[in-house]
């Protein structure tokens, strides 16, 4: 029993670090997309470690294997749904013209990227893969070059 308590305690402690760090990041981060990153860490990492600790406790200390199976089901379900919800929130924010910030406070991406999303969203194939990755990268590069031109 003592060994199980120690192992599950370590797992729950790591999970607590993830959860609390994600919550602090959600308050302290400067930008919507960075906050999204902090919240996603909480959803996956924190939930996984805390649930592993709780499964160990339920199976060996409380002697209730049904509860352990249900916690495992919760893990599986949340690992499908939490990234989906995060992606939906991110895409909705991008469609609503919330622009990511870069390090020096200037926005790297200008209106062209969000305009690209909005135009291409009209046919079905582009919803499944909205923009080709090379196009996004070249867009970022163009926007950066424009910013440098403006600053000099």
């Amino acid at each position: 029993m003592l060994l199980i308590d120690i192992i599950s305690g370590v797992f729950i402690f790591i999970g607590c670090l993830f959860v609390f760090g994600g919550a602090v990041g959600l308050v302290r981060m400067p930008d919507f997309y960075t906050r999204l990153h902090a919240a996603s860490v909480t959803d996956t990492g924190g939930l996984l470690f805390i649930s592993i600790g709780l499964i160990l406790q339920a199976a060996f200390v409380f002697d209730n294997p049904m509860a352990a199976i249900k916690i495992a089901l919760t893990i599986v379900f949340l690992f499908f749904t939490a990234p989906t919800a995060s992606h939906a929130v991110a895409k909705a924010a991008l469609m609503a013209n919330i622009i990511p910030q870069c390090q020096n406070g200037k926005s790297v991406v200008d209106e062209s990227l969000t305009a690209l999303y909005k135009d291409k969203d009209k046919d079905l194939s582009s919803v499944l893969m909205p923009v080709d990755p090379p196009e996004i990268i070249s867009n970022f590069a163009n926007a950066e070059a424009d910013n440098k031109d403006k600053s000099t």
């Binding site: 994600g22 919550a23 959600l26 919507f32 919240a39 929130v89 909705a92 924010a93 609503a96 919330i98």
Partner: peptide, 11 residues
Amino acid sequence: TLYDRLLAVNS
């Protein structure tokens, strides 16, 4: 923004 609030509620 609205999306910050929604993200916080989801979290």
